[in-house]
Amino acid sequence: MLAGQPKYRQAVIRRRWKLETYHLIRDCHQKYNWKINLMCKWAKIARSAYYKYFDTKREPGEREKRDRRIEAKIIEIAQSNNSLFGTEKMTMAVNRQMPDEKPIYHKTVYRLMCINSISSQKPRYKKPKFKHTTPEKIAENKLKRDFNASKPNEKWCTDITEVVVQGLPKAYLCTVLDLYDRYPVGYAISKRNDVALVQTAYEQAVKTYPNAHPLFHSDRGFQFTRAPFQNQLGEQGMTQSMSRVGCCIDNGPMEGWQGIIKEMRVVLHPQVVSYDELNASICKTIDYYINEDPQKRFNGLTAGEMRKEAMRGNIKNCPIAPNHRIEGYWKTIKEKKIREAKKILS
């Protein structure tokens, strides 16, 4: 049972076994009048530890008191969001909500989550299939996978995703996301994946930030390749950029954000029985993401807190951490191409 389990989980399982043994010894002593020393010896448990566990007059130490406070906060957060957070997010959330405590480390949170059988509950989605369309107008990929932004409203990206609940009409979500702080500057929800959906999300973003002139990146969906939409971007002083055909990673942050929101919605609002409830659950999930979901890249701040700091002029540089696995993958590809070129030349 312990084989293959993480170290802290093994410790938690052993602790549970020990507590169950304490209660078994007490029950046998009360029911059959068996000797406690003998049972402790058989169970290979220190008799002092047994008496200490059942000593009601014993005052808990400072560490135990602190653990109890942290444990109560972890349980409170887990109950409020249906165990949405894993260890990392839970650690950031606990530190945000307990500012008077000393810094709480992830190992402490992981240990207490294991004790209380709290773990992240996230579903996985199959990628939907979309029909290919002939674009009216296209734009160059000017973003070129440079997803870092030095200030708000420098780079926006957008996309449409479908939210599916069995037995209900599909909900289509179009979002305009600021790459600086992953903040949704505008979004719209509709039963139809059409031009009006994109127009509503775009107009909401422009209404909120009328003086913004960002690089506007999207895929080659028919809603974004229309000449009127491109003219609209030009009038607003925006530069249009588009992903290449079949390269969803060109719009990676937007794709990833949509997946996060859909996973969060299922956990936060698992029971929806009508389209209106589905629509409301998406809005509530986005609001939760903005105000309650701490981000590691922003040192525990939420996207909303990061946006407020930036709007006050306190612009922070939070570059995306390098992904060594992806870097190694592209390095291997590059080396392979060099070897093939040398073979051709030789």
Results as ranks from 00 to 15, higher is better:
residue 263 E to T: 14
residue 74 I to P: 01
residue 86 G to Y: 02
residue 244 R to C: 03
residue 58 R to T: 13
residue 94 V to A: 07
residue 212 A to C: 03
residue 4 G to L: 09
residue 250 D to P: 01
residue 34 W to I: 06
residue 339 R to F: 12
residue 220 R to V: 04
residue 55 D to G: 03
residue 270 P to H: 08
residue 179 L to T: 06
residue 188 A to H: 07
residue 119 S to H: 14
residue 141 N to F: 03
residue 262 K to Y: 09
residue 287 D to W: 06
residue 39 M to A: 12
residue 135 P to R: 04
residue 64 E to I: 03
residue 311 M to K: 13
residue 25 I to V: 08
residue 232 Q to Y: 01
residue 326 I to K: 13
residue 174 C to S: 15
residue 218 S to N: 01
residue 252 G to K: 11
residue 23 H to A: 02
residue 85 F to D: 01
residue 241 S to F: 04
residue 76 E to P: 01
residue 245 V to D: 08
residue 312 R to L: 15
residue 179 L to A: 09
residue 228 P to D: 10
residue 26 R to V: 01
residue 43 A to M: 11
residue 12 V to D: 15
residue 242 M to P: 04
residue 98 M to T: 10
residue 276 D to W: 09
residue 206 V to D: 01
residue 219 D to N: 04
residue 269 H to P: 03
residue 309 E to W: 00
residue 25 I to C: 08
residue 147 F to Q: 02
residue 336 K to E: 15
residue 309 E to Q: 15
residue 290 I to N: 03
residue 304 G to F: 08
residue 109 V to Q: 09
residue 249 I to S: 13
residue 228 P to C: 05
residue 83 S to N: 10
residue 88 E to L: 11
residue 153 N to K: 04
residue 131 K to T: 07
residue 47 R to N: 02
residue 344 I to G: 00
residue 220 R to M: 06
residue 6 P to M: 09
residue 185 V to E: 10
residue 346 S to M: 13
residue 248 C to I: 09
residue 272 V to R: 07
residue 97 Q to G: 00
residue 50 Y to E: 04
residue 57 K to S: 15
residue 73 K to Y: 07
residue 170 K to L: 09
residue 318 C to E: 07
residue 343 K to T: 14
residue 287 D to Q: 14
residue 325 R to N: 11
residue 146 D to G: 02
residue 200 T to Y: 06
residue 61 G to R: 01
residue 299 N to S: 13
residue 222 F to M: 09
residue 230 Q to T: 07
residue 72 A to P: 02
residue 35 K to W: 00
residue 86 G to W: 05
residue 37 N to Y: 12
residue 184 P to G: 05
residue 273 V to Y: 14
residue 314 N to D: 13
residue 183 Y to M: 12
residue 36 I to S: 01
residue 92 M to C: 06
residue 44 K to C: 11
residue 208 T to N: 11
residue 244 R to Y: 05
residue 176 V to L: 05
residue 73 K to H: 06
residue 261 I to L: 09
residue 162 E to W: 04
residue 11 A to K: 14
residue 195 V to Y: 14
residue 340 E to H: 11
residue 94 V to L: 05
residue 113 M to D: 03
residue 290 I to Q: 07
residue 241 S to T: 04
residue 99 P to E: 11
residue 166 Q to W: 09
residue 73 K to P: 02
residue 296 K to S: 15
residue 313 G to H: 05
residue 144 K to P: 00
residue 105 Y to H: 12
residue 148 N to Q: 07
residue 154 E to L: 08
residue 93 A to V: 06
residue 346 S to T: 12
residue 153 N to H: 13
residue 343 K to Y: 12
residue 308 K to V: 08
residue 262 K to R: 09
residue 289 Y to E: 06
residue 285 T to L: 00
residue 260 I to T: 15
residue 325 R to K: 14
residue 47 R to M: 04
residue 270 P to S: 05
residue 205 A to K: 09
residue 340 E to G: 00
residue 113 M to L: 04
residue 295 Q to F: 01
residue 111 R to G: 10
residue 19 L to T: 11
residue 97 Q to A: 10
residue 249 I to Y: 14
residue 97 Q to D: 14
residue 5 Q to C: 10
residue 232 Q to V: 00
